[in-house]
Amino acid sequence: MTRTRLAMVLCLALGVCLPAFARAQDKDPAQTVISVCTRCHTPARICKNLGVKDQDAWDATVSHMIRNGAKLDAADKPGLVSWLASRKPGDKPVCN
Rank of each mutant, 00 (worst) to 15 (best):
G51H: 05
K27M: 13
R67G: 13
A30F: 10
G69F: 09
P78F: 10
K48Q: 11
G79K: 15
D91E: 03
C47T: 06
D56R: 09
K88H: 11
K27I: 13
G79F: 12
G79P: 10
T42S: 15
N68I: 00
M65K: 08
S82V: 07
A75G: 13
R67V: 09
R45G: 02
A60P: 04
G51W: 00
T42W: 12
I34Y: 03
I66P: 01
L50H: 12
S35W: 01
P29N: 01
G51R: 06
R67I: 03
A30P: 07
D59P: 08
S82I: 11
N68V: 00
L84N: 11
D76M: 01
T61M: 13
I66R: 05
D59G: 02
A30E: 08
K53V: 12
K88S: 11
V62R: 02
P78A: 10
D54C: 06
A57N: 10
A30R: 10
D28M: 12
K77V: 15
G90E: 03
P29H: 00
C37D: 03
N68C: 12
I46K: 00
A60M: 15
S86Q: 14
C40D: 10
V36N: 08
P89E: 02
R39I: 07
L80S: 03
D28I: 01
K27Q: 13
G90I: 15
A74I: 00
T38S: 10
P78D: 12
R45A: 10
R87H: 01
D73C: 09
W83I: 07
P89Q: 04
D26G: 13
D28W: 02
I66L: 11
A44K: 11
D76S: 09
K27L: 13
Q31W: 05
L84C: 13
A70Y: 08
